[in-house]
Amino acid sequence: MKKLLVSVFTLASLIGAATPVSADQPAKHTVQKGDSLYEIANDYGISSHQLMAINNKRSHTIYPGETIELPVMPNANEKDLLSRLVEAEAKGESYAGKVAVATVVLNRVESELFPDSLRGVILQEYQFTPVSNGQINKPASQESKAAVEEALDYQGYDNESLFFYNPDKAYSAYLSAKEVTTVIGDHVFLR
């Protein structure tokens, strides 16, 4: 019986090590002796190139004890929430604009300036108008859902935008002091 329990515990530990991380869980991996970037990426279902990009690595060299940042990997409910936010925030914008809005939210999860969960970032008070006016409760279009999927695949390759706004609809002295990273449609993206 004891051997069976140890075997079950060992199997559960191995399965848990390779399970994608939810956006509400820490997105980090501690390198163990014998690990490689390729194996870590494979365990989490991402490419080694994306893992390198997220960690600003120029080579595949890693060391035991090193902490590797992982991309945000939301569950189905978190993806739906993000898709609904993208739909409400970027309705009428291009597909690229929708991807950029989703990317801002994902970047905020990774930033020390914002909550460290997807839900926390989206529901943070005074951040997204659709949360306060209820527009986030409307269903997302297929295009917004696809934009979220692309933003998830694009993590690590972006220009680190943390903010966006439409200067025709809002003015912010705080945002005007930030560095513009790109302009897509009516939205200005900044870091």
Rank of each mutant, 00 (worst) to 15 (best):
M1E: 12
M1T: 13
K2T: 11
K3C: 11
K3N: 15
L5G: 04
S7H: 10
F9W: 00
T10A: 15
S13A: 15
L14N: 05
A18D: 00
T19L: 14
A23C: 12
A23R: 01
Q25N: 02
Q25M: 09
T30Y: 05
T30I: 14
V31R: 08
Q32N: 07
K33R: 12
E39L: 12
E39Y: 06
H49N: 09
L51V: 08
A53D: 11
S59Y: 07
Y63R: 13
P64V: 13
E66C: 10
T67Q: 15
E69K: 14
L70H: 08
N77Q: 15
L81I: 03
L81Y: 08
S83Q: 06
V86S: 06
E87P: 11
E89F: 08
A90P: 03
A90I: 06
G92S: 06
G92P: 04
S94W: 01
S94G: 06
Y95S: 02
G97T: 02
V99C: 06
V101T: 12
V105N: 05
E112C: 05
D116C: 04
R119K: 08
R119Y: 11
G120Q: 02
G120W: 04
I122P: 03
L123N: 07
E125P: 02
E125G: 06
Q127P: 00
Q127D: 05
F128N: 02
P130L: 08
N137Q: 12
P139R: 04
A140P: 04
S141L: 09
S141A: 00
E143F: 02
A147L: 11
A151Q: 10
A151V: 08
L152G: 09
D153S: 15
Y154H: 13
D158C: 07
E160W: 10
S161I: 04
S161N: 07
F163K: 04
D168N: 13
A170P: 00
A173N: 11
Y174W: 04
L175Y: 14
S176Y: 06
A177H: 15
K178Q: 15
K178N: 06
E179Y: 01
E179H: 00
V180N: 04
V180Q: 12
T181N: 10
V183F: 03
V183L: 02
I184H: 00
I184K: 10
G185Q: 07
V188S: 03
